[in-house]
Design a protein around this nucleic acid. Sequence first.
DNA 1: CATGAATGAGTATTCATTCAT
DNA 2: CATGAATGAATACTCATTCAT
Lengths: 218, 218, 218, 218
Amino acid sequence: MAPPSNPRSRPSQPAIPAGRASQPAIAGARRVVSDKREAILDAALALFVERGFWGTAVPEIADRAGVGAGTIYRYFDSKEALVNAIYRGQKMRFSAGVLDDFPASANTREQFRTIWMRMARFASANVPAFIFLELHHHASYLDAESRAVEQRMLDIITAVVTAAQARRELKAGDPRLLMGLVLGAFIGVIRSCLDVGQTPADADWAFAEQCIWEAIRS
Amino acid sequence: MAPPSNPRSRPSQPAIPAGRASQPAIAGARRVVSDKREAILDAALALFVERGFWGTAVPEIADRAGVGAGTIYRYFDSKEALVNAIYRGQKMRFSAGVLDDFPASANTREQFRTIWMRMARFASANVPAFIFLELHHHASYLDAESRAVEQRMLDIITAVVTAAQARRELKAGDPRLLMGLVLGAFIGVIRSCLDVGQTPADADWAFAEQCIWEAIRS
Amino acid sequence: MAPPSNPRSRPSQPAIPAGRASQPAIAGARRVVSDKREAILDAALALFVERGFWGTAVPEIADRAGVGAGTIYRYFDSKEALVNAIYRGQKMRFSAGVLDDFPASANTREQFRTIWMRMARFASANVPAFIFLELHHHASYLDAESRAVEQRMLDIITAVVTAAQARRELKAGDPRLLMGLVLGAFIGVIRSCLDVGQTPADADWAFAEQCIWEAIRS
Amino acid sequence: MAPPSNPRSRPSQPAIPAGRASQPAIAGARRVVSDKREAILDAALALFVERGFWGTAVPEIADRAGVGAGTIYRYFDSKEALVNAIYRGQKMRFSAGVLDDFPASANTREQFRTIWMRMARFASANVPAFIFLELHHHASYLDAESRAVEQRMLDIITAVVTAAQARRELKAGDPRLLMGLVLGAFIGVIRSCLDVGQTPADADWAFAEQCIWEAIRS
DNA sequence: CATGAATGAGTATTCATTCAT
DNA sequence: CATGAATGAATACTCATTCAT
């Protein structure tokens, strides 16, 4: 559809290891490119959350990112490619935040608490990103690869759940149902707070975690 | 400049007694006018679910409804008026389906089961309508009246929850949080099934109901 | 382009000979038709003056005339045919009002005063009609016949002017120029009053008449 | 939502010193942008005269100007903004052409001749522009600023007329009436020529000037 | 590489006209 | 004859995308 295509494979990687921003010549030149890509992703994420995918014009994204409209098309093939890049990037951050160093050998109670509180940490620290992931969940412009990223996380958790069920520490039944129930409840908690303009407090998260644990424990 | 104004003979008719759509002769003749309105509402609901509000073009709705594009504007002032009419109509059907003849004097366990299973019945029988209500929850094009319809249902349920908490039959805590958790779990259950192309079976609903009851009971 | 086509040749004839509106049976039936035609012409004239040709919707005309939208097409082939019928009708009324019983044998001073004051009488008594004729002068939707009606009046006056020039009672020169100057001045006088929401008083008309006479007399 | 706003480098540039449009090299390069704006204004002026404001479709203007339809909206916020820009621009050119270096100390005969012949010069050299100003005089889509431009010119001339009346060099009476009469006659002269496809010759203008002077002198 | 002016296909909406009743 | 619901072509305007600079 369009020319250059994504010049950097790095999928958005937020937390730039601060503290070594001061580096000379060549590194600086290399950064310029990435900074633009980063700026575009950030601007687009914010605008997609504020106004939705269809409500956001590409030139607006360019303005907010401080680049020319044409520049966006040097980094992304299309507006859809852009939204998919954001989706994949954030979903992978979310996935990493929840599953990295997963306490595979802990008991189920501990594992559940870990997952829940990590999700809570991510959602609280990245409200726009989390809203974005929710809003765009199953949107018609998400492509197969984006759905695959989603699926990968699901597969991992499914394995965890199945193992826990095998240990009789979770209710028996379709793992999909159980996971849907848990993720749905999690989103419901956030929504109930955002609807009144707040973010759930730590106590809220802990309370909800206890509730849902009681829902799923055997 | 404005069209001859909405004939609006029936504003979407909540809670059609499903199962006896077959009625004879004369009633059919009287229907002709309303049938177009109904066809537009149905077509729009389906397309809004498939592609979203902004992703659906008005002529597409007209095509699917089997009417001319201009005809839509004889029944609805604008695309936004149309989506609001659908939202209000379905929300009221949903609300009626859940809250009519509510067993106010039953115990909390019974009340919860009633609400949950009624929601399940509506969602299963009206999958597109339920998805529509979820997708368009808090969309920017919903007007004040549509939000009011939503709020009315919320208020009623809040009262039920608060009363149950007062009786110590539900966990203490912000009713909003509890309700968000329950509704979120409910949606999560549906999503987990739709994602694999199915609708939750009665057994699934009953299982999930038991889970969530354990989450919220004191 | 369209079906029935104008069922009555009578081109708008306003001043219905009042005083014999009370007539029995058959005449009454015949009147009904004409009344609708009349009502349509009146409503259209008023709306075209208020909002212009393009700014007026056919159903609006029907509403104001108290008939169905389709009815207009029983009397006029199209919106353009309607505006042309009005134009021709009013132009002929104007022409008749100015030229009927023209004092062919009077001196030029008297003839000029006659023409001017008759034009003034028509314009004052039929402000909307006069504005209509001015607004639609040379509009792109006027057809050849409408222009011919205009031309006929011009030809008659040209003859009068030429005769007066032959008698050396008017300045020599192209009669067209002289007539354009006079008619233009007449319209300018009306405009200058309408711009401030008034109609020229008799004294204004007389004053202007004297001015223009001095402009054209030899 | 709104376009990046009008670059508006020159708001139609009144009174281009005709006769030296030929300037070299670099200036040409700088022109490129404005040339599109100019082309749009020219095309729109011509079409508005031919078919009227409502009778002219925006894509037609784009075609005639040799630009894309969307391009018009880079230079003008809307079709109405476009017609207002033309009106203001031409009215200011007209005003400047008539009133710049006005011989304030000359006698009334000389002042009148100056105004009349300057108007004639403008109208002859810019027939479409003059017709445009006439046709769109008091049109509903003209905004307050456009009307203000018109009013400014009127005020100046009113002062001149009042002063001349005070010197007893013009007939006494409402200045508005006198001015309407003169401007009307001027337009009438042009119309009488355009109706037969010509432009008034210098001799015609001089003849008419003498006529109207006799109409208004005391 | 970066830009942003230019584009034209696509959008929601209007309205002259038709035709079944 | 009269109607007005229905139509679809036409309108003004937007915006993702391109490409000359």
